[in-house]
Design a binder for these strands. Structure first.
Lengths: 349, 349
DNA sequence: TGTTAGCACTCGACTGATTTGAGTGCTAAC
DNA sequence: GTTAGCACTCAAATCAGTCGAGTGCTAACA
């Protein structure tokens, strides 16, 4: 059944009010705002209808109403006013994002930080899986005292490094670096299968006078370092903000939520399920019971036309959706633009 | 005035009990444990004495007693039983710490993680200031599309990298790398003053056909990257654990504490004030009001014979001091050993 | 027919009195 | 010096009573 125009206005007023106060909203409160010019009694009748239709919930007989998940959903889809980012906010965002930006990781972390600053909610971001980025360069640096540092630089600006206990001299390190580069540079992590690594190892053993053990050692590390690029990283920002909401005035619940936010697997799964563009999951629409009283708004970011990660905001169900959506949208655009500048479409930099 | 043997035993029993329960301890509770074979009345008398002497506090007339800061201090200095690390704990510690360890940062983070796992309290670690480590190597990698990645590797295994928008070709990058290395490699961050950088810039301008703007750009980044090594990094682990203590059952207080733990400057200052070896600050002994209900146990770790950083545990005043001390001691020893292996004394690796 | 004033009703939140019980200090007896 | 006993204290729990925000329903009104 369609909602009459008046019902929509009342529902909107109720949700707007509830977002601010976190207290059940009574008919008189809406009537007093006098935007509709209706008495509390009339609004009461409409509210009773709205409750029957599933948009509102009455915690107990003598309390006002709060929105149901369905109510929020309708609000988000149809009622919500567009939030206009303030000029200052946009300028601040631009200032931060255009500070010297170096690596992918830094950009993502910054985006998360900005999102949590703008919205004052908890943010979660996932970094791209990098199995499509190419090995730009491998470098072995002899650190002396039997240690060699292996550094791998990818076309996406990620640097992986690990020190290995292998006793070689500078000269040999340089030669090995050269040979390795000629074999490995330009490959994607996907292409660097274990078999391929082994094959390279066999080839090298022929042209370098080196103990097989040492070579295998090094190649093993290279493999692992590259392999780890496959991992999706997750960063959480401003988790403590949940403690400010009356929804989490119970310490036990707050602890539960914080524990949830510390579990990377949860978060990857949670955010991974989102659809492209701005995605909103209200309350029980989330697959995790821990979030049944929270909402999650996510937006993807891309390199070229390929979605590589998501930025998400977790807050109480009565979050300021309009503001969150506007902020995320803005941030995602900026991130896209910067990634584009840095890595030109395919990360083929 | 000296405490009689019996008073000491009673004080110890009270604090042991209070550490477990967080509830004021009554005379009957102590009497019932029957370790001393005294009636509650006798213990009552002694407790009255101990209170008068400042070791105990009575929250209100009809409550039991809780230890005062002075009481804890005496407990820590004289009464506390030595905590014996379990074999499993030590094995676990060893297993984690001897996993492939690469950089300094990883080691420190691991140490912090282990400390929080073992003690179940919040841990704070500071990473070394690295102004005494030497530049091992500088490398400019042309990323294409007008971006150059500057990579700096230090003798302590730290890698700093930043991408800069400068349009040069591979060949020039290689030459510049070579020249830069010949001038800068081997220097400490301290030696690389801004003046020195400028001087190098002037020299290079003579021998390379390069626009001054580009060179200054690069050297600026080099300077900043190296300069940032001077920063002490702080990592906090398991901050959420404070939510488990009745001391923080008030969400407001918990939030305050978490905010404090997010402020890096606070933490550096807090931990920086500690004396060498194991240092214990009980309640108001800490300079920050936020910690007046908490205790802080720190231990330093060293490279060679030089103290380079500290690992700290923050918990309620009634923390299990013996266990925390034993754990930190053990961890610090392991860290020392590993740093020693990796960087051989002076970080001259 | 839609709107509104009025009123009885509900029920959580607050208030204040009362009870409970853990724990004390003091005294007197051992 | 130790302890049993007892009066006393006081926070916390319990309970009854009140308040008031908010509702649903009805009847009157435009």
């Amino acid at each position: 059944m369609e909602l009459s125009d008046r019902k929509q206005k009342i529902l909107q007023a109720i949700i707007d009010e509830y977002i601010g106060t976190a207290e059940p909203v009574g008919s008189r409160a809406i009537s007093k705002k006098n935007e509709l010019g209706l008495s509390s009694a009339t609004i009461r009748n409409e509210m009773a209808d709205l409750e029957e239709m599933g948009y509102l919930i009455q915690p107990h007989t003598s309390a006002g109403r709060i929105p149901s998940d369905v109510g929020y959903r309708f609000y988000v889809n149809s009622l919500m006013r567009r939030y206009q980012m303030s000029v200052e906010a946009i300028e601040k965002l631009q200032a931060i994002m255009t500070e010297r930006v170096s690596q992918l990781e830094t950009i993502i972390r910054k985006a998360s930080l900005i999102a949590s600053t703008l919205t004052e909610y908890t943010t979660v971001v996932t970094s791209p899986k990098l199995n499509s980025s190419r090995i730009k360069k491998i470098e072995l640096v002899n650190m002396g005292f039997g240690n060699v540092m292996i550094v791998i630089i990818t076309s996406t600006g990620i640097i992986k490094n690990q020190s290995v206990a292998i006793d070689i001299d500078d000269d040999f390190a340089a030669r090995l670096t050269e040979v390795l580069n000629s074999r490995i540079a330009g490959l994607t992590a996907d292409e660097l299968t274990f078999d391929k690594i082994k094959q390279i190892g066999d080839e090298l053993e022929g042209c370098l006078d080196v103990q097989p053990r040492v070579l295998i050692n090094i190649l093993n590390f290279v493999y692992e370092a590259i392999d780890s690029l496959d991992q999706t990283e997750v960063y959480v920002n401003n988790a403590k903000s949940i403690l400010s909401y009356p929804e989490f005035s119970d310490v036990g619940k707050a602890r539960e939520m914080l524990a949830f936010l510390e579990n990377k697997d949860n978060l990857v799964k949670l955010i991974g399920g989102a659809k492209d563009g701005v995605d909103i999951k209200i309350g029980a629409e989330n697959e995790f019971a821990e979030l049944s009283n929270s909402s999650l708004v996510t937006v993807n970011y891309s390199m070229g036309d390929k979605v590589v990660g998501r930025i998400g905001v977790i807050g109480p169900k009565r979050m300021d959706y309009a503001k969150v959506i506007a902020s995320l949208d803005c941030i995602s655009n900026h991130v896209d633009k910067i990634l584009d500048q840095l890595y030109n479409t395919e990360g083929e930099g």
